[in-house]
Design a protein around this nucleic acid. Structure first.
Length: 485
DNA sequence: CGACGGGACGC
DNA sequence: CGACGGGACGC
């Protein structure tokens, strides 16, 4: 070993271990002492550097904080992002909680949610100033015995934090494990804890994000609904359900089942009211409550329960990864609600109903207004749908009829406000058998479903008509169907 | 919008 | 003789 290879420069050590340095956007008046007061509770601070103008010595309003461990930096980021540093407080530890309590009400009343921004700093060598996002920090890549299943992974890795999903990498054709896996946590600190503390044989490292094509790869991992999707994106109306069907499959693999309850995880502190207003945009909200720790402090998590599974599925689709407030990605996971689980097949129907129903709600003026201002609108538009029945279940998939089959019956469907995708419709209508083709008239909100068998068409119409009646009754819209020959 | 100083080497 | 080093996701 030569001297050179073994010597680290001081600059190198700034990013060792990786992701142990924070980048803070503060105000120009925030001092090193104030930062130390608020951040030393998270672990061993090795360095604090308030960036100043070389000549004027005035602070530029940004700072770097180096922790000994990545988990400490991540926890500090999660807890301090969105908080407001109040200057002049004394660094006496047992007063800390009183100040904290005071801040909580301060935020609640005045809505100062973004006083302080906290990110994991880009490594010095990267040269990029792009914010490091949570999805780069929450998924670990591990080497595992080939006998491990997703359930084994979950069992071994849940001690480090809340797991969103586990995946064993398998050979696509044989299904045989490749001895590699992924675990996605809700929070960066949890992934960091796993990496720091799990058995070395797992060789746990942060997973490289999938589909990293360019600098702007924002929507690659999350099917991220953003405010710019809320306006007049022509693809929007087919989007929710198409995503939902893919999603359902992968989530099953992650061994989490679909429920009416969601756990919302947020880095910024959101108020009860903000949470409520956001999730109440989707009809059927039963309950929305911020989770508190034993001292009564906001943990950045909320429990949301809908009165039907379709609404919860839709909420997850629309709001998982949603930035609210901007820069703060919400993470949603299903949690057990103690009730019987719906079958994946039944979910298809629920999602169809939900997607159709919600695209209406979300593209309504009230919904758009809310998303644009992201302020405290109360959404009066939604609660009328609370009574929606969601007990529809669908038969299993069936093969399509040969393309050259004679059309015995044709369903005519009217979409409101816009068509669902052909894939989705095919997925649903094939279940009644003898489906030949789904055809949507270009540029119009209508389409035809061709069947080789009259009975199949009838059953499809009757089964799906039950949901349509409800929609009609409530809003004079939804999917209309009629028989044609 | 909001990104990189100061200090100084070991068996 | 005797156990290193390797490592990636269906669009």
């Amino acid at each position: 070993m030569t001297d050179d290879s073994n010597v680290r420069t001081y600059a190198d050590s700034l990013d060792d271990p990786p992701n142990s340095r924070l980048f803070l956007v503060t105000s120009k008046s925030t001092t090193e002492e104030v930062i130390r007061e608020h951040f030393s509770v998270f672990g061993e601070i090795q360095d604090i550097w308030v960036v100043k103008d070389k000549h004027t010595k005035e602070s530029k309003g940004v700072a770097f904080v180096k922790f000994a461990k990545s988990s400490q930096a991540c926890k500090a980021m999660e807890d301090m992002h969105g908080k407001c540093l109040i200057e002049g407080t004394k660094p006496i530890n047992y007063y800390y909680y009183y100040y904290y309590y005071y801040y909580y009400y301060y935020y609640y009343y005045f809505g100062y949610f973004l006083c302080l921004k906290v990110f994991i700093a880009q490594s010095r060598s990267s040269g990029s100033h792009r914010d490091v996002e949570d999805e780069e920090l929450t998924r670990i890549f591990i080497m595992i015995p080939k006998t491990f299943t997703e359930e084994d992974l979950k069992e071994k890795f849940k001690e480090y934090g809340d797991i969103e999903y586990c995946i064993v990498i398998r050979n696509k054709t044989t299904g045989e494990s490749k001895g590699l896996g992924y675990v996605r946590y809700l929070k960066p600190s949890q992934a960091a804890m796993a990496i720091e503390n799990c058995d070395r044989n797992y060789r746990a490292i942060l997973a490289e994000p999938k589909n990293r094509t360019s600098a702007s790869c924002e929507n690659d991992y999350f099917s991220t609904p953003r405010s710019d999707h809320m306006s007049h994106d022509p693809g929007m109306n087919s989007y929710p359900f198409a995503e939902a069907s893919n999603f359902g499959v992968s989530e099953m693999r992650g061994s989490d089942s679909i429920t009416k309850c969601l756990l919302v995880s947020s880095r910024a502190s959101l108020s009860q009211e903000q949470m409520f207003n956001l999730f109440d945009l989707i009809p059927g909200l039963d309950h929305c409550e911020m989770q508190r720790d034993p001292y009564g402090y906001n943990k950045g998590q909320a429990l949301v329960r809908y009165n039907n599974v379709g609404s919860a599925v839709y909420a997850k689709e629309k709001l998982h990864g949603f930035e609210y407030p901007p820069g703060n990605r919400l993470v949603l996971t299903y949690i057990e609600d103690g009730e019987e689980k719906s079958s994946p097949v039944g979910m298809m129907a629920l999602q169809l109903v939900a997607a159709q129903m919600m695209s209406m709600v979300w593209s309504s003026p009230v919904g758009q207004q809310f998303m644009k201002t992201s302020s405290g609108y109360s959404s009066g538009s939604s609660t009328q749908m609370n009574r929606l029945q969601t007990d529809v279940s669908l038969p299993p998939h069936r093969k399509l009829a040969p393309a050259d089959s004679r059309v015995k019956e044709r369903l005519f469907i009217v979409f409101n406000p816009a068509p669902l995708s052909v894939d989705v419709l095919e997925d649903v209508f094939c279940r009644f058998g003898s489906l030949i083709e789904v055809y949507i008239v270009q540029g119009r909100n209508v389409g035809y479903i061709k069947f080789a068998d009259r009975k199949s068409a009838n059953e499809a119409m009757i089964t799906l008509h039950a949901t349509e009646n409800i929609l009609d009754h409530l809003n004079e819209s939804g999917i209309e169907m009629s028989l044609m020959t």
